[in-house]
Simulated assay, not measured.
Amino acid sequence: MIISCGIAFWRGRSDERMAASAIIFAALLSPVAKASGFASPETGILGIDMALLVFLIVLALRSDRFWPLWAAGFQVVGCTIHLATFVEVDIWPPAYMAAQSFWAWPVLTALLAGTWLEARFRTR
């Protein structure tokens, strides 16, 4: 996260910087919102992840770049994992935590790739 968001602040334009800020904000709030240690649906983290999803969707709709679509798509999967725990309540907590946190990596990768491509395109 430090590398992706750092490069977004260093080389990115407003879309990349806003996304990096939102991702950092969500990452800082998530441990505070954790209630059950992933033993049951984490509604606080779900709220934070849904807010990030809405932000990424709005960013994707107004941006002239393609990477926010990918970031929003990956964030949808992360939110869906939260919603699945309401249906299947006997999910093993480490599996829930790993599956949910895994999808932060593709969101960060989309931000990093988008920043790199934007910076590369600007220098031409």
Rank of each mutant, 00 (worst) to 15 (best):
M1G: 12
I3K: 08
I3R: 04
I3C: 02
C5Q: 13
G6S: 10
G6V: 10
W10Q: 05
W10C: 05
R11V: 08
R11Y: 05
R13H: 14
S14H: 02
S14I: 15
S14K: 04
E16Q: 13
R17F: 09
M18F: 10
M18K: 15
A19V: 06
A19P: 13
A19T: 06
A20P: 05
A20S: 11
S21P: 14
A22Q: 07
A22F: 12
A22S: 01
I23A: 07
F25E: 01
F25S: 01
A27W: 09
L28Q: 08
L29T: 09
L29M: 11
S30P: 01
P31C: 09
P31H: 02
V32K: 01
V32G: 02
A33D: 09
A33R: 03
A33F: 12
K34E: 14
K34C: 13
K34Y: 00
G37V: 05
G37R: 00
F38R: 02
F38K: 02
A39W: 01
S40M: 06
S40D: 11
P41G: 03
T43V: 10
T43A: 00
T43S: 11
G44E: 10
L46A: 12
L46I: 09
G47E: 12
G47K: 03
G47Q: 04
I48S: 07
I48D: 12
I48N: 08
D49K: 04
D49P: 03
M50I: 13
L52Q: 05
L52Y: 03
L53K: 03
V54I: 14
V54M: 13
V54K: 00
F55E: 07
F55I: 10
L56V: 14
V58K: 01
L59V: 15
L59I: 09
L59P: 11
L61V: 07
S63W: 10
S63P: 02
S63D: 14
P68K: 01
L69M: 14
L69K: 04
W70D: 13
A71D: 12
A72S: 13
A72H: 01
G73R: 01
G73C: 06
G73I: 11
Q75R: 06
Q75F: 04
V76P: 04
V77C: 07
C79P: 05
C79E: 08
I81L: 14
H82C: 12
L83R: 03
T85S: 06
T85V: 06
F86Y: 15
V87E: 05
E88R: 08
E88L: 04
V89W: 00
V89F: 01
V89M: 03
I91E: 08
I91H: 00
I91V: 15
W92Q: 08
W92G: 14
W92S: 15
A95L: 13
M97G: 11
Q100D: 10
Q100P: 01
S101C: 08
S101E: 08
F102E: 02
A104V: 09
A104P: 10
W105C: 02
W105K: 00
W105R: 00
W105E: 02
V107W: 02
L108G: 12
T109K: 05
A110C: 12
L111W: 04
L112V: 15
L112P: 10
L112C: 10
A113E: 06
A113T: 13
A113S: 05
G114D: 14
W116H: 05
L117H: 06
E118P: 00
R120S: 11
R120P: 03
F121T: 07
F121M: 12
R122N: 15
R122F: 04
T123H: 08
R124A: 15
